[in-house]
């Protein structure tokens, strides 16, 4: 379903190169619930961003459903996201002016689904998630747990093949965290959706069958039901080497990576630290 081959990402920070991801090769199967675990600066968020096509890798490939995500144009990515991908954010990222129903129906608007149909679907999924009484509330009128459930409903509403979640429980208390996690596991299993989430909490990761552990940009552990998959990951990397051996060497040399604006970089750094706290 998701296949990552020898992924490498290098940032330039003030003239210095920082390797965020190095030689990451993994394959996530269809319907799998996968946690990416690691400490701050381990590269887990960078990996997620690259899987979702939010950032381009310096080297390597990301394939989802056989499609090469890292080569897509912005336009192709937009259509690809409409049809294949759902996203859950740590800080919910709901539209502040819209009601719960409108927020959930929002992604369907981009697909051109008529208002009546998309809001009907949004109501249905919100009701299933126990938010029947909060349908017409705006985000600021809801608790964090309720807001995140709206965010989850928004990710599931267009029945995507993959859902990415970036610390979905990061802003929630432990009781709500458990509720939300159970809900995520339940819905993705019922709908046979591949679920990839990033967390810094190893306890939370234990709830997932598949756990990928990152440290300093490298995969240091990869287990399914406790069985290591590191050897298989190595095979993926080898197949990539063979595949690209005959081809021209990748032109995307690290030095040609566009220089990051320092300001932007700081925000990014600040963010990854914020997550780990």
């Amino acid at each position: 379903m998701i296949r990552v081959e020898k992924l490498r990402k290098v940032y330039k920070v003030g003239g210095e190169k920082v390797v965020a991801l190095d030689n990451v090769s993994v394959e996530i199967e269809k319907g799998e619930f996968c946690c990416i675990v690691g400490t701050s600066g381990s590269g887990k968020s960078t990996l997620l961003n690259m899987l979702a096509g939010l950032e381009k890798p310096t080297k390597g490939k990301v394939k989802i459903n056989g499609q090469l995500v890292n080569k897509m144009t912005e336009k192709e990515l937009a259509v690809f996201r409409q049809n294949n991908i759902g996203f859950i954010f740590q800080s919910y990222n709901l539209m502040p002016t819209m009601t719960a129903v409108e927020n959930v129906a929002f992604p369907l608007m981009f697909k051109g689904v008529p208002q009546k149909i998309r809001e009907k679907r949004a109501r249905k999924i919100l009701a299933e998630m126990g938010l029947g009484s909060r349908m017409n509330h705006k985000p600021r009128e809801m608790s964090g747990g309720q807001q995140q459930r709206v965010g989850i409903a928004r990710a599931f509403v267009s029945k995507p093949k993959v859902i990415f979640a970036d610390e979905p429980t990061g802003n929630l208390d432990s009781a709500t965290t458990e509720q939300v996690m159970k809900m995520l596991l339940d819905i993705s299993q019922k709908n046979d959706i591949t679920f990839v989430m990033v967390t810094h909490d190893p306890e939370l990761a234990k709830m997932a069958r598949r756990v990928i552990t990152l440290k300093d940009g490298r995969v240091i552990n990869d287990t399914r039901d406790g069985v290591s998959l590191l050897e298989e990951d190595e095979k993926i990397a080898e197949s990539f080497e063979e595949e690209t051996a005959g081809e021209q060497p990748e032109k995307q040399a690290e030095d040609e990576q566009p220089v990051q604006v320092p300001g932007e970089q700081e925000v990014s750094n600040g963010h990854s630290q914020a997550i780990s706290q």
Binding site: L54, K75, A78, R81, N93, P107, R154, S158
Partner: peptide
């Protein structure tokens, strides 16, 4: 800025 980013993640096209 953030809203626009969210819209993009949710699959809104550039022309829209």
């Amino acid at each position: 800025t953030k809203e626009i980013g969210i819209m993009k993640v949710l699959g809104c096209e550039l022309k829209d």
